[in-house]
Simulated scan of single mutants.
Amino acid sequence: MVHSYVRLDAYRTSLVPQTYIAQVTRGLEAARRAGLKVVLRFAYNFGFEADAPLDWVLRHIEQFQPVLRDYKDVILVLQAGFIGAWGEWHASTNGLTSLTNKQTILNALLAAMPTDRMVQLRYPGDLLALYPTPVDRNTAYNGSNQARVGHHNDCFLSGPDDTGTYNPISQKSAMQSYLDRMTEFTGVGGETCQVNPSQHRTDCPTALAEMRRFHWSYLNLTFYRPAIDRWRTEGCFDEIARRLGYRFRLVRAVVPEQVSRGERLQMSLEIANEGFATPFNPRPVQLVLRARGTQTVYTVALNSDPRRWTAGQTTTITVDAPLPANLPAGDYDLLLHLPDAVSGLSSRPEYAIRLANQNTWEASTGYNNLQTILKVQ
């Protein structure tokens, strides 16, 4: 994963030239070739400088809409951006931090993005103001605007209020309770920004507890480096690296020894999620039968959503699928495939999910070998 700013400093009150839009497009094409996903943010500065008037912000969003749609496959998530210093939704020079203007810009971003991609807001207070009731299991992933809004904290663990993240601090408890509920179903990430040893906010126990509570999927590895180094020194860095996002482990597969052609394959898989979060973009689940001799594959689509393989729990996937009557008899390896949902990436192994088990991953195919043989007769 990479974090990328699109800087619009030179175009605060003018249209973005097509040559610059083409440059952004080339960057996303390079990410696609390299097998990367991008956390994207548009900004008019990299510090406390001017942003743009509202009408120009909306025009710029409209200009980039085709790019956002054409390259959704490599855009992991869009940070709301555009407003204020660093595009972090504070210190606007054009009055963009009013709730009305924030909502206008957020709605424009959600309309510009494909409906299966999320936008992240910087401040929990904005989430509470815009969507007073947090998204839950019943409303998650339903395509509504609220279901597509996550959170990024760019001063994680930096002090009692995470340097203004929880503003006002008197409402921190309410904001955290809100995040506790909605982050199970939305994308969360960000970065640290300082170390406060006396407050113990950046120590390992606190970091692990809050990443688990708020379902963190990604974290800037290069900033703030002293905070990252503290986790290395205290010994939790490797655990954080393993558990950011999802970490799926096959607990067991219950598979019949044999099945007849034309009959139903009935089996189950138990998948433990030992990460802090789940995938927050759609992803199919496929069972692959691969003939041991010819290596011919037969794919069974499973009715399961990895976005609902809850962190800290084990999910049972039940398979009850008919086998074609003309399926050749013989021995088949069983494999689990979790490919990217976008057709252009679905066949690329580097975009498939790898299970945490040993000796299951096939780097050449993107399959997870269940180390089980099914006899078809």
Rank of each mutant, 00 (worst) to 15 (best):
G159P: 01
R148W: 04
F223T: 11
M1T: 13
V259F: 00
L15M: 01
R232I: 14
N107C: 13
F223Y: 13
P160E: 15
R12F: 05
Y44K: 04
D161Q: 08
F42C: 03
D126P: 15
G81T: 14
S92L: 06
P339K: 04
Q103P: 06
I228E: 02
R252P: 00
L336D: 03
L54M: 05
T93L: 10
P284W: 00
V195G: 05
F48G: 04
G344P: 08
R212A: 03
F82D: 10
F64T: 00
G189Y: 02
V259S: 08
R308W: 04
P349G: 04
T294E: 12
T202H: 03
V39C: 09
Y131G: 11
T365H: 05
F156Q: 08
R354L: 12
P279H: 02
Q371F: 10
R225Y: 10
D331Q: 09
Y5V: 15
P349F: 05
R12Q: 04
V2K: 12
A80D: 11
V288Y: 00
S217M: 08
I240Q: 07
G293V: 01
N303I: 11
A22H: 03
I75K: 12
T165Q: 13
P114F: 05
F276R: 08
P324T: 15
V24I: 11
T222S: 14
T163N: 14
A352C: 14
V77K: 07
P339W: 07
P328V: 03
T186K: 01
R7K: 11
G87W: 05
A227M: 15
A325Q: 08
L110T: 01
R137E: 14
P17D: 07
L265H: 07
S158M: 07
F214T: 08
P349H: 02
N368M: 09
M211G: 01
T19Y: 01
A277F: 05
G125W: 13
G95C: 04
V6G: 03
A30F: 11
I21T: 09
G189K: 00
E362T: 13
L287G: 02
L336N: 09
N281W: 07
G312W: 00
Y246H: 10
T294D: 09
T13C: 07
M211L: 15
T192Y: 02
L109R: 07
V135E: 13
S4D: 14
R354G: 02
S170W: 03
